[in-house]
Each structure stands twice: as C-alpha cells, then as structure tokens.
Design a protein around this nucleic acid. Structure first.
Lengths: 251, 251
DNA sequence: AAGTTCGTTCGTCGTCACTGAACAGTATTT
DNA sequence: AAATACTGTTCAGTGACGACGAACGAACTT
C-alpha cells in the first residue's frame, strides 16, 4: 500500500493546501509549483469548483468559504465544545483576556474555541494549530499521555524552536511534563512567542483515561500577564472553570 | 467532458459531505449510504486521515478541525473582511444585535463574519449559507445583478419556500428587487424564518460594476426588530456603515 | 500585427481507483 | 463458552479514467 491509497485525492489536497490563506492562483502557476501537468491541475480545479469549495473568476482560482462552513459545523458538533462554551466565555469576561478551548488533533494543539481573539495580538485564532511542546495547553495534553506517546511525538515532529525559552531537549520536556502533572496546571512563559504568556488547565474524561478531553487556556501579552496575576489569580480562575467543565461532561 | 473531471475527488467530496456536522461514522455505514464499496470508502478515509482532515478512533471516522483552519485562513485573507471588520463590530455594539458581513458564492448568501451570533437564536453562524431569495442580504445581492443572472438563479435553484412570506414567484421577486435597488436597502420580514427580521445595506465596488462586493446586515428576533427601530433606526445605522466600508474599500 | 502569455480542450497511454471476496478482529447472542 | 454477526481491513484483478504533452483560442504586450 502506498502512502496515500487514493492518489487523486492526495493531489487535490496538495492543490487545496497551495491555495490556503485565500491565495488566488492560475493553472500554470500551480502546475509549475506542484510539478503537475496543467491539464491535471485544471481538472482538479474544475472538480473542486463543481463541488462548491473553489471559486473562479476569469481564469484565476481561489478557495471559497465552504471550508469555513464545514469546519464550523464540525466544531459546533463537538460535545466538548457545547459543554465548555459558556465557561470559555466566562473566563474571557472575568479576566478580560483571550480564552480558549484547546484539543489535540494529529499531534497538534488545535484551538476549537477562542474568545476575544483580538486580545492576544491576533496570533491565535479559531482553528489555529500549534506544536504540542510549545504551548501551555499543548504541554498539558502531552503531560497526561503515556511516555511512549510523548516519545513518539518528539521523534516524529521534533522539538522545533520558536524562542530562547522553547523546550529543546527530551529531558527538559520530561521534567516539565512531570511538574505539570503534579500541579495539574501548565504555563507558557514565552516559549512560542517571546512576549506571550498563557495558563492552561486540564479537562479530564470521566473515566480518568490517559488522554485529556481537552484544555482551557487564558493567553495574552506578557505586559498584562505577569507576577501574581499570572501565577495565582489566573490559575485559580481557569482551574475552577475546567473542573466545572469536567463535571458537566460526565453527566 | 463528464460532470466531475476527477471522479476520485468527487467521491472524496461525497464522503466529506456525509461526515459534515461532526458526524462519526463507520466504513460499512458510509459505503452503504453512498453506494460505494467498503474498500473504496476505506481507501478514501485513510487518504483523508493522512492528509490531516479526518481523524479516526478505533475504526470510526469523523472530520477534524483542519477544515476550520483552512476556512478561517481563507476568510482572514479576504480583503473585504479586513476592511469591513470594524464596521461589522461597530454595528453589533451600537445596536446590541447580531451583525454580519455577507458575500455571494456559488449562488448562495454566505456569512463571512458574524458578530454576536448568540443574539439571533443560533440560526446564523459564521460560514452559514442561505438561498439568495430568502434573506435581506441575499436579495440585495440579487438586486444588483443583471436580469439574466437573476433568471438563471431562479431556474437553477428555484424559489424554495421557508415560510408564508418567502417570495414564491418570479414576478414578486422582480418587483422586490426593483424596490430594493431604488431604496438601496433590503429587508427580511420573516421570509426565511417566521420570527426573524433583518436589514441589509449594499457594499458596492469602486468601479460601480454590476456585482456587489458584499452586504452588511443586522438581524435578530421580530420581538426586538420591529416598528420604527426596524424601519428607520437600523437602516440609518447600517447604511452609513456600508458607505464607510465602500469608501475604505476604494483606497 | 507578430509575439507571448494565459486557460482550456484534445487524444493517447498506462496506472490506479474501484470492486467483490476473503480475512481478522470484537461485541453480542445463545 | 461457543457461535454468530457484526465490524474494519487487506487482497488481487481489471477496466475505467487520471495524468501527460501537444494543440487550440483568447487576451494582452510589444
């Protein structure tokens, strides 16, 4: 079995990825870039347009908002989102900062809900994906995973460095994860972005199984998130919110 | 040329659509439903999982949030969104109601931005798609299109009926569109949902070309949107906001 | 008006996407 | 505890069709 059982779908995926971010491109452009024949790229684009996910205007193509529609329908269908929604909002209201519901997907931390995204400098938005080892919520998710799973993560994704503070060694990661598990709380003090801080609390499953259901997180600029506020006030708020979500989830 | 030049991609699209709304399904289930062999469905799902858009847990499959990520990146990349964003927010703040930026795509009204979605009863959310003839913004978009384009819309999509007030005949639609063009303003008084009201104002392009760039809209329950507020106050607010967007857009 | 781009269309070939059937687990039933 | 009835997955064969290179036609540029 090859890497991608359905090659044509793989090609479609590559074309879609190339058009991410609302980029508008022509057939020849894409064909050259992806190393696919013009005719083939054209066929894929026409198919995608008929499916309603691509729009074309006089020969140039771009992704439409159908992706957003599908994505929102998926998000709204998540049981955890329905349960955590009000708490996420509540955190943003009581703190005045960005708050988020984060889940794990394909080895990444994914933001399934973000309240007040404008308060984090536009760095994190709904649907954002970040490496697990370089965010408060991501580390939290890793902390509740088995050692093998963590090792596998490090091997396949590596410990990409974003700032001086990004965890760089497996040993450091292991120490940090233990400390997180002990406290039931996770901090990010500029490990992904120099001037950003975050606190995250775990949402465990009813059966207390290994993997977390998700994490709640508060995030914002270092100038507002520091000292006692970062170390004591926010942890208190977010921990109790996460506990309430856990309870609601088990009903 | 067939309907879909790349058949495999079409199949993938059908599978994805079947999984919309966060539905979790098994291979056999999908195969039976779509009339495709189990093996084929399996191949598509494995491919989609490798591409990172599908997640599987012990044999059951569902869409992941990658769609949301792509969709948000497309939305954030829209020039109109960047320009209209603050005005959309402003409308929601000054009215306390849901406000939206709406564009046309594949013959549907698409909500590219929705502020305070909770204030419209959860009926309209980011990425929602509605028929053009049964919403304030949709009718507005049709109103600035050529007669042939409108005829084509009616022929291909038909005038689906949602409430007693939904426009049912081509003649009524023509009259309504003329009136909208004359006033430069569009109302929805329960044409899509019995107890919903909306007002929309056009965002024209600099070159004054036929097609609108989009529309701004306020929407909410009939109990709050009625009388002078619906007929005079909201139109004033939304018209001036749309005008400002038009100006910003032409810079 | 010749030239250069583009998107699109056209056949042709060789591959691979689809099928039906066998396999391997797991849950349910008896 | 054995048997049944579901799953999801793998397998091998084949015929449709996806990929390619080339030709086409339209739209700008020169």
């Amino acid at each position: 079995m090859s890497e991608y059982p359905v090659g044509a779908t793989h090609t479609t995926g590559r074309i879609v990825s190339a058009l991410e971010g609302g980029r508008e491109a022509g057939v020849t452009e894409l064909a050259g870039e992806l190393g696919i024949s013009k005719a083939s790229v054209h066929n894929h684009l026409v198919t995608l347009e008929r499916l309603g996910v691509v729009v074309s205007t006089d020969g140039r193509y771009r992704l439409g908002l159908r992706f957003l529609d599908i994505g929102m329908s998926v998000r709204d269908g998540m049981p955890l989102y329905a349960v955590a929604r009000e708490e996420t909002k509540g955190i943003a209201e009581s703190t005045g900062e960005s708050s988020a519901l984060v889940i794990e997907e394909h080895g990444e931390a994914v933001y399934a809900d973000v309240e007040r995204p404008e308060r984090n400098g536009g760095r994190i938005r709904l649907g954002s994906r970040h490496p697990l080892h370089a965010s408060a919520a991501g580390k939290l998710i890793l902390a509740y995973r088995s050692r093998e799973t963590v090792d596998e993560y490090v091997e396949t994704r590596g410990l990409d460095r974003f700032t001086d503070r990004t965890i760089q060694s497996r040993a450091d990661l292991r120490d940090e994860l233990r400390s997180i598990r002990d406290r039931g709380l996770s901090f990010d003090r500029g490990e992904y972005s120099e001037d950003m801080r975050a606190v995250a609390a775990p949402i465990r499953r009813e059966d207390r199984s290994e993997a977390l259901a998700g994490a709640l997180s508060v995030l914002g600029p270092a100038e507002r998130l520091s000292g006692k506020r970062l170390e004591e006030d926010l942890p208190g708020i977010i921990l109790s919110a996460a506990k309430r979500v856990e309870l609601d989830l088990s009903e």
